[in-house]
Design a protein around this nucleic acid. Structure first.
Lengths: 390, 390
DNA sequence: TGCCTTTCTTCGGTGGACGAAGAAAGTGAG
DNA sequence: CTCACTTTCTTCGTCCACCGAAGAAAGGCA
């Protein structure tokens, strides 16, 4: 149910890490495999040090189960969540715990070289600190705020970021760090992370990242859905009537982004003489009860909801998860909820949950780390684990 | 690539039936399995009479391949494509050929009993004729113009068709015919049929059925995507600004259906004093060059294109297939194309094909038959074939 | 104390797929 | 025409993953 090959070693690991299964018997029930098979798999993982036995659980009328645990702090992936004006870095363990999470300002629009320089520097230092703490680093996961070809790790035609087109982010970073790197769109890694951490049992999921820009990641049949050219999940450049003729960074007009993104809200506030630059500023203003800010955020929510309404009717997901900085603003979440319930088919919303991302500002980072752990496991020091494919 | 379990006997059959593979060696290349494995599978199918050897092909510098063929006319599924005001029936062979296709008028809105009565009557006669022609009937596939729970074969809350809610269409038909029945939404079976017949190598597909109503079927990862509650693919009840406050059969207002469906176009024509009742009338008027009709159809195309624009950006399919009666109107197809190319991300449209359904008015019927052949194979007389699952 | 449940392991199948080897049939250069 | 090389397809032994039966370990409950 979690996107990994069913029954594989990585699948076992995920079930234990998420707490879905705590003993071999649990795994038997969960996987539907024979007890002997599960025992063998678990033994491999224990031998490889990826799983440990830790005491016994409560009896259910018979022998007590031997509890399994993913040893935390053994292996981590480094993770970076790139925003257009900042980067967050941290390490993520097999249990999903984040370590040493840190943010610093960085303007991606100045081009790839300075950004990669700073990123490599911070990740190198982070890796050193993780080694010092006794943790092995198996790779790096990077979420990039624009289209990425996940096969080659290249950035593709990101709007508002000149110089990045076709930049080989994965290979350039790998050269500097000497570690296997996974690069994907930020909304995609967010979706992977939220799926695994908060909704591992759901199979069809739309995860929206509303921050300075707007993006979304899609989980279908329990797996990340990328679409034909890898640009699935774009809701940012959908035409919205309220945006009329506003020119968009994509070269078209009337895109959702021009009225509902953090950048657009900040610009609208500045037009009204209210100082707002980042999404953080917007959130502060909303919390302070600044009426213009609240109105704009609520309107943004209604516009996003309008587009998501089409998506929900068409895709009929089990949940819509709202992530990204702006999802911390209650009015936005409320507005999205309102519009979806108002416009969508009752059948599409009756069992739909519409929730904010479970891990707030770290959700994207943790997702990038999780994606790296899954994808790079085979290459990077987790012996015996088949590489997870998307 | 065709939605069946990869490597299964049914998969082999599909590859041969679609002409993708013509010999064992082709199958080896296509399936990526060992030659010995393929040989064994083929032998089973030949023994079961589902595959025949028919002569030899051209040499490619070595021994000539022994050509494989799906023997046509052996086994068929009956198929019924229900519209709100007509039913089409026919038989479909393993090669995808349709036999004895016939249409008659039937108003579904008068409730299920008379409809099922007539349908059972016609299918019984059809079955008798197929038997007389020496063909074995393995089951029946039915496309219904409204939401269907494919597991139970029940109709769910169809709009404009009182009396059908929770009607157990599959079981009622099975009682009368004594054959295994598959019931699904008409757009879903259309999508399955077009996928297999025209685009077997594509993995992500949106198939629109534009007729009296509007629906769509979605293929993701090569398989029919149903969504959480089975209502994925709905684009009919998306709010469209041009529809303003028009009340829709679904109880909401401003739905796409109220301005772009065949029913809406016919109503608009009647308002202008032009006699038009069915989609056939509309098509005739357009072909006759009636300006109002052409304008309305073109506008409908633009509205549908507007909604599909969101879908294409979000879902990033490899192809959009336009089916249903209205797709025979060139202006509609042209309008959809225009809007999609105008509004969507270049990355989403650069390799997108936007085409009309390959088999015109029979596409839905053939799809229903194909779905039945796939799904009912195991129960209904194709020994050794595992049931295909969705 | 004895019987039942639950948990987990051991061990001997079983079936699907693989790969090596070779047979069958053809092409084409010398 | 002959011989080397292709392509196609089959035969057969092997391997691997998983299964199921049986049993061992540990505990609940009458």
């Amino acid at each position: 149910m979690t996107g990994t090959e069913p029954g594989s070693a990585a699948h076992v690991l995920e079930l234990v890490a998420t707490g879905t299964a705590r003993s071999r018997a649990d795994l038997v029930r969960e996987l539907g495999l024979a007890a002997s098979t599960v025992s063998a798999r678990v033994q491999e993982l224990v031998d490889a040090g990826l799983l440990t036995e830790s005491g016994e659980g409560a009896s259910r009328g018979g022998r007590r189960p031997r509890l399994l645990r993913v040893p935390d702090g053994g292996t981590v992936a480094l993770a970076a969540d790139l925003g257009s004006h900042h980067i967050r870095t941290g390490a993520v363990g097999l249990t999903g715990t984040g370590y040493d999470i840190d943010e610093c300002a960085l303007d991606l629009t100045t081009g790839p070289e300075p950004a990669v320089g700073l990123l490599a520097e911070r990740l190198t230092a982070l890796a050193a600190r993780q080694h010092a703490a006794g943790r092995a680093v198996c790779g790096v996961g990077v979420g990039f705020p624009g289209p990425v070809d996940p096969a080659s790790g290249r950035v593709i035609a990101p709007s508002r970021m000149p110089g990045w087109h076709l930049y080989e982010l994965r290979d350039r970073l790998a050269e500097r760090l000497g570690l296997p790197i996974l690069v994907d769109n930020d909304a995609n890694v967010l979706a992977l992370g939220e799926h695994r951490a908060a909704h591992p049992d759901l199979r069809h999921l739309v995860v929206v990242k509303a921050g300075r820009g707007i993006g979304s990641g899609v989980i279908s049949h329990g797996r990340l859905y990328r679409g034909a050219r890898g640009c699935a999940g774009d809701i940012s450049h959908v035409r919205v009537d309220a945006a009329a003729e506003r020119p968009c960074s994509c070269g078209n007009i009337g895109c959702l982004e021009t009225v509902a993104s953090g950048a657009a809200i900040a610009a609208a506030l500045r037009e009204r003489g209210i100082g707002a630059d980042s999404t953080t500023d917007i959130l502060r203003l909303v919390e302070d009860g600044e009426p213009h800010a609240t109105t704009l955020v609520r309107q943004a929510g209604r516009h996003i909801g309008g587009v998501l309404g089409v998506v929900v009717n068409f895709f009929n997901p089990q949940a819509v998860v709202l992530g990204g900085a702006l999802s911390a603003a209650e009015p936005l979440v409320a507005a999205v909820r309102g519009v979806l319930y108002e416009r969508c088919l009752p059948m599409a919303t009756s069992e739909l949950s519409i929730v904010a991302a479970s891990r707030g500002p770290d959700a994207g980072l943790l997702g990038a780390g999780h994606a790296a752990l899954r994808e790079l496991a085979a290459d990077g020091g987790l012996p015996g684990l088949p590489t997870a494919r998307t």
